[in-house]
Nucleic acid binder design. Structure first.
Length: 483
DNA sequence: AAAAAAT
């Protein structure tokens, strides 16, 4: 089975060949002929299955039927609209459209927030057939009458479930009301809740179902592992793991924007090139950081769930859950950034006692018992191994205090600097960082990692998180505040 | 539970 067998026109076949693809993926085999035939599609595909090309190629072919000919009623009008939930995702679809449309006289542009509107307006004035957009900025253009959607022939809703989660429903409905009723619509979603079905009912006419096997929710080329660890030692363990895999890149997920930035700083201070990406960063920073990571200029990208879905990073070997996601579905999306297109991938999760509950939810969903490996020197709280304990529901203030003490205890037990032999060379002091990191540990990465002078850089940083001894107070206050 | 998205 080749792309030619799917009925694609030569211009598209050439573009596919230019991009180096030879064989269509299952979702492409299913979707391409259906879309070319003009049907609406309800697609149940995970990302990383070739979904984007699966709708981009036939969409271009439909538009190419009368591309910019003088007889075309919609010459240089917006004829296709693709909506995506995040800016990065929109950009990625745009790249795909650009790649496959290179031999066709069709123009595409990407419309999203966080950047200057004027450049987008100029671009739209040129006459653009294919617009890839996030909903908010698109509506902004609609309001300013800088885009006309009355000639749209094709609509794609990508990652529809995510759009729902993000509260985009009103925006989507609004956009739908602006489009001609006589159009072809494609809806892609990883899950099918009642709400998605409702949306599909309103949006699609006699849709054909396209679905890749449900059981392959999680790529089989991914190796999963859980490292039980106390919450206080997580970042040290992360640095430890990264130092033992010196040549690999890793995408590290955290739950909050605050932790995101701090963790990236922590890794940088420990000589591991890292940066962070989250929604509070400027769009320019987000774009640049992602580019740097994709280009291999950055070893570690610390991210919130802004990067959890759909992002395609070539041959990314490691996804690390620094914090376990609180829904099992998020786990599937996060680790879906690795093990793509048949490559091998590793999904590593650092799990403390409080997170055990989420772990069992995840294992239920992916129908897989994830092996647990305690890394020596980074043992978890004892309660991690106690059946039924850990993380279910809210914790009382007393519990929280207890947890802090346990965490501090774990730090006390962390390996101490070895005493220098009398008369021997003294290592620089202190060798134990305030956060408990032990610099004297005999790390021997295969290739040396650049060493930063952590003793001075830590002392010099005014924006450090609170030192030991202050933290329990904050925890206590938080606990009391709950009542 | 937090994050994402128009300003």
């Amino acid at each position: 089975m080749s792309f030619a067998d799917l009925g694609l026109i030569p211009e598209l076949l050439n573009a596919v060949a230019d991009a180096g693809y030879t064989e269509p993926t299952p979702i492409q085999r299913q979707a391409i002929p259906i879309v070319i035939a003009g049907h609406d599609v309800m697609g149940g595909a995970q990302t990383g299955t070739g979904k984007t090309a699966g709708f981009t190629l036939p969409l271009l072919q439909r538009l190419a039927r009368h591309a910019n000919t003088s007889t075309s009623p919609a010459r240089h009008q917006t004829r296709a609209l693709i909506l995506a939930p995040t800016r990065e995702l929109a950009m990625q679809v745009y790249e795909s459209v650009k790649t496959y449309s290179r031999h066709l006289p069709l123009r595409a542009t990407c419309i999203y927030g966080g950047v200057d509107m004027n450049a987008q307006i100029q671009e739209l004035r040129r006459g653009i057939e294919i617009v890839i957009a996030t909903p908010g900025r698109l509506l902004d253009h609609v309001q300013q009458k800088t885009i006309n959607l009355t000639q749209v022939e094709m609509l794609v809703l990508d990652e529809a479930d995510r759009m729902l989660d993000m509260g985009f429903i009103p925006d989507i409905r609004r956009i739908l009301s602006l489009l001609p009723a006589n159009r072809q619509s494609l809806l892609f979603s990883a899950t099918f809740s009642e709400e998605i079905k409702k949306l599909a009912d309103q949006m699609l006419k006699n849709p054909q179902m396209v679905e890749v096997a449900r059981r392959n929710m999680v790529s089989e080329t991914i190796t999963h592992v859980v490292h039980p660890v106390s919450s206080g030692m997580k970042r040290n363990l992360l640095a430890h793991l990264l130092r033992h895999q010196p040549d690999t890149q890793a995408l590290v997920f955290v739950d909050t924007k605050l932790v995101c930035g701090r963790l990236a700083h922590f890794l940088e201070r420990h000589g591991i090139s890292a940066d962070s990406i989250h929604g509070d960063k400027s769009q320019q920073q987000r774009t640049e950081t992602l580019e740097a990571f994709k280009a291999g200029k950055l070893r570690v990208l610390v991210a919130t769930d802004v990067a959890a879905r759909g992002l395609d990073i070539d041959e990314l070997p490691y996804v690390i859950n620094f914090e376990l996601p609180h829904t099992a579905e998020d786990y599937v999306h996060r680790i879906g950034r690795t093990g793509r297109a048949g490559h091998k991938g590793n999904a590593v999760s650092l799990v403390c006692a409080e997170e055990k509950h989420w772990l069992s939810e995840i294992e239920k969903l992916i129908k897989l018992q994830i092996p647990q490996e305690v890394v020596p020197g980074f043992e978890p709280e004892p309660e991690f191994f106690e059946a039924g304990k850990g993380g279910r529901g809210r914790r009382s203030a007393a519990d929280r205090t207890d947890r802090v003490e346990k965490t501090e205890g774990a730090r006390e037990r962390a390996p101490r600097a070895t005493q220098p032999a009398a008369g021997g060379k003294r290592p620089p002091r202190p060798t134990i960082a305030p956060d408990g990191f032990d610099f004297s540990k005999p790390y021997e990465p295969a290739t040396p990692v650049p060493v930063v002078d952590t003793t001075t850089s830590i002392a010099a940083r005014p924006d450090e998180p609170p030192r030991r001894g202050q933290r329990p107070v904050a925890f206590l206050l938080g606990g009391l505040g709950r009542k």
